[in-house]
Amino acid sequence: MLISKTVRITRIISGTWKHFVFNIIICVATYLVYHFLFHDRIEVPMLLPSILGTALSFFIGFKNNQAYDRWWEARKIWGELVNDSRTWTRNILSYVNPNESINGNELNKIKRQAVHNHIAFVYALKKGLRSSADMEYRNYLTSKDVEAVELESNVPNAILNLQTNLLESLYKNGLVDGFKFMQLNQTLTKFCDEMGKSERISNTVFPTSYNYYTKLFIWIFIVCATLVAASSIGPWSIVLGISIGYVFLTTYKIGYSLLNPFEDITSGIPLNQISRTIEINLLQALGEKDIPEPVQAVDNEYIM
């Protein structure tokens, strides 16, 4: 996620130079074709690029709004996950109390396991959303649990099943009463909802035809604008076409970069940072000493 209030020109160029070069080629080729083949033979009406440009503005604006909605919804989901993770840990540490059948040390191990399982859930969910090779969740599960959850295709859901079984065991052993059991179970349900919402965004592909035709119409608009200008300003139509095209292509690129918010790119949701924040908060709540460092921003520009 970009965090800098200013954007370096090098970053803009690195993200748009391919479009820019192709834009130059298209505009130069369009002018040369008009000058040598259609000069004084055909005149493109001004109405064509005017109508097409207006339609494209609404089209790209609608697409960018939809892309930002996907990005913002993803950010809200993981913001809720942070809060619910803290709630889960706080309630586990406060609601689960020892009785005559179990001593304090054993109970602390169970509490620690419940919190560690949740950290594993967060990292497994991040891995699934980014389709990465990271196996950080294994650090917080027992070898037996690792084998069990990796037998299933959806590892985060399998970890939630472990949590449900653990919570049921606490209730049956009288370590948590019915009311507190319901609250803890409700938190697990929220985790499942947040997992499902994240997977829905990740697995729902923005219509390919929408992206394809938007880009196609932008190139048609650039050609038309260059042709219209060529009859009145000559070679300067190349500069005009490049300028207009760069604006439309860059605007399109901005929206396109937000369509998949969980991708491991600079404009995506900072899952590494959020996951590490949850990990740090939960380990500190347990009173553990081996606390990892927060994820740092890269060049004070973005954080992953």
Rank of each mutant, 00 (worst) to 15 (best):
E263N: 15
Y95G: 08
I13F: 11
T6N: 06
S143R: 15
L56K: 03
S50H: 08
T266H: 10
F58S: 12
C224H: 02
T277V: 10
T30Y: 00
Y123T: 03
K190N: 15
P207R: 09
L81R: 02
I280H: 12
R86M: 09
R130F: 05
I220L: 15
I9C: 00
S232N: 11
K197L: 08
I265P: 00
F38R: 07
T189I: 09
E199Q: 15
G268Q: 01
N165F: 09
N105W: 01
I9F: 11
E43H: 08
A297N: 09
E150I: 08
A114T: 06
N103L: 04
A148W: 11
H35W: 13
N211F: 10
E73W: 03
Y31A: 06
A297M: 08
K63C: 04
G174P: 04
E152T: 02
V122N: 07
L259D: 03
G174Q: 03
N99R: 08
E194I: 00
R200A: 09
T226W: 05
Q296T: 12
T54K: 09
N260M: 07
L249Y: 12
L160I: 14
L48D: 03
E263M: 13
E136L: 13
L216N: 05
S231F: 00
T87G: 04
S132W: 04
V21P: 01
K172N: 07
L48V: 15
V228Y: 12
M135E: 10
W78P: 02
K5T: 14
I218T: 03
V122D: 06
K76Y: 01
N65V: 12
I291F: 06
K5M: 13
S50D: 11
K63Y: 02
R130S: 10
A124F: 04
R130T: 13
N161H: 12
N260L: 04
Q183P: 00
I9K: 07
H39P: 00
V44T: 12
A158I: 03
Y68S: 07
A230K: 03
K190G: 12
V21Q: 03
R276S: 08
E293A: 11
K111W: 00
L93P: 02
S209M: 14
A230T: 05
M46R: 14
Q186M: 11
Q284A: 11
T266M: 14
K289V: 02
I92P: 00
Y210V: 08
R75N: 01
I60A: 05
I77M: 01
L249T: 14
N83A: 13
P45T: 11
I51Q: 07
L48K: 08
E100W: 02
G241P: 13
N173H: 00
L129Q: 10
G234K: 09
L151G: 09
L129H: 10
R200T: 12
E73V: 12
R70M: 01
I254S: 03
N281A: 07
A297P: 10
T30I: 01
I242L: 12
K253Y: 07
L151N: 12
L160S: 06
W71S: 05
L141S: 08
K63M: 09
L167T: 14
L2N: 05
M304N: 12
T54E: 08
I24K: 06
S202K: 15
S14V: 04
N161Y: 12
G268P: 01
R276E: 11
V28K: 05
